[in-house]
Design a binder for these strands. Structure first.
Lengths: 189, 189, 189, 189
DNA sequence: CATGAATGAGGTTTCATTCAT
DNA sequence: CATGAATGAAACCTCATTCAT
């Protein structure tokens, strides 16, 4: 079973795009920059993607899928809600600042660069991720670990964690685990 | 003592720019769109601002100054730390979703569109605002209302509140006060 | 009463465009060629026209309007149908190969390069011109100068005359008047 | 004696090309469109033709050859000049709007898309066709069926007939025969 | 101050063509 | 023969900015 060559090149492009979009924003990244970063000519990009926006969509899709996988992996086999909530926070931060960092940052910052059609396509994935959080938040509220309305609490927590892309520098200063711990302490009773 | 005519027009432009930058992003707002929104021609803009970026700087400066004024007003004359912390949160949210909403959103979302020089110029204002928070956070920690490292706590809280621009619709559903209350309940012991 | 400067430049562009479109076809004429021919830079074109197609529309509109004016002028004050029919043929050929030649050729050859919307816009003008012919054709048939169905006869005659753009070289060999005379002799009884 | 496989595929391509060139013009038809229409990929086209223009040449060559054959067939075995002239007109119209319609239309409309070299190659064929007409026209003039200079008359007539591609819709309204009859009535004494 | 015209650099995209597999 | 990937040139168009009037 071999991965087709095509998808290898496409994947390279998505990874390079994530990096560039993070560094310069989507609008300020030109297709020529992206081509140069992957060693091809700008026209060749359009064999793999219909247009520039499709590249952004691929990056964000990638980010969203990996977010979900990350928290699923982190929380699975846990039964205690305290542990689960912590694992959820930790898993989110771990992937947010891990190897997929660029894609996640782009997912967060460039959502509004998407056309309405593209949003439509991606919103399902985003909803799925948020539902995963919502269920655990509800359980935490039921167990008096958190108080308030589930949706509001979820928005507060995810916003706070996502905001860390603005200031957190991985591999310098705090570890992700410490970060998660302090955050957990702040919100959980 | 009269306000010079020029500054009236300049102010109109900053307000219109804030709205457009919020709606379409800085990069996707053209100077022609801005000119059209204020009933002038694009060439005339350059009598008021040296370049497009100067307009962004003006918008963000506006937003930051008003943020500071808002929380100062809200917390002044309060002595109880519980009340002060709540007022800080409430004040932040009130101005964030109040009449200056556009400028605040632009301050938050378009920071990275600034050149390094412009960032230099604005960072003083931003620091001032953050220091205002920092002091109160420290007091709250000293009073066991919050726990953790002050800087981290500040970043968590401000991130969470700022994130509300992504989902909160003023004048529909929750009031700002309810929002502040729920948030306060979540983080304060 | 002065003609605004703007329309002078626009008119220059339309004239230059007609020439280029005639020589290289619309598709093979680039906006840079057109800019070079008028001594401006390609971007400047878009102050005068929204897009390349709008230039084509302007050229064709010009051609159609001048066709109508030409045959109106040529036939006015004539009452005899023999003379009128000849004048119609002669007027058509005269403008077709006169100073407006380029625009007429473009009107004829590039009609199908128009978008549907542009066609919609121009078809009124074309209809007007054809109606002018139709009326005279009918009168000629009523006077037994021509025989057959008016619409068919009109299409036959106009097609034949228009086709002359493929082979007739003005100011070399036959005169327009001889051409008209021979054609008149061929179709009129 | 078998027709080589290659030439079958080549012929399919020429037929498909004629249709596409007619519908979208040569310039607006991409090799990818042509490939898609024949169920192959664009790279494969270049095994059958050296370049895009060679396809156009093949289409036009096809059209011209079939025109000649059509009028030869239609007029052969006729001796009466009245009948011959009518047959010439009828034969031209019949093939122009018959099964080879696309190729004929392309021959007429895309002549100017040819490079000078290609024109050189095809002009012999076109001349041959025109000479066939010329001879009959001369005979008709000698018999007072037509009046005027042979070349001019030929250009008038062929132009008129060719123009019918702009307005005639086969299999709706008039028959080809009626068309031919009305045209014959118009020009012949 | 305001404007219309022009600039020039650069943007995304298209497309015929080539070629290794 | 067929293909998918790549090329490279060029296409149309955008836009912040300048400046004479």
């Amino acid at each position: 079973m071999t991965i087709p060559k095509q998808s290898i090149r496409r994947n390279e492009l998505v990874v390079a795009a994530a990096k560039l979009f993070k560094e310069n924003s989507f609008d300020r990244t030109t297709v020529r920059m992206l081509a140069a970063a992957t060693g091809i000519k700008s026209g060749s990009l359009f064999h793999h993607f219909k247009g520039k926006e499709e590249i952004l969509v691929a990056v964000i899709e990638d980010g969203l899928k990996k977010s979900l996988k990350a928290v699923q992996t982190e929380t699975q086999s846990l039964t205690d809600i305290n542990q689960t909530l912590f694992a959820l926070i930790y898993g989110h931060l771990k992937t947010l600042h891990g190897p997929e960092r660029d894609a996640h940052i782009v997912s967060i910052t460039e959502w509004r660069s998407l056309s309405d059609e593209s949003k439509q396509h991606l919103i399902t994935l985003r909803d799925e991720y948020e539902q995963f959080w919502q269920k655990i938040i509800i359980e935490a509220i039921d167990n008096r670990l958190l108080t308030g309305e589930p949706t509001l609490i979820r928005l507060f927590i995810l916003g706070s964690l996502n905001w860390s892309i603005q200031w957190f520098q991985p591999s310098q200063g705090k570890s992700i685990k410490e970060l998660a711990q302090q955050f957990y302490n702040m919100v959980a009773k």
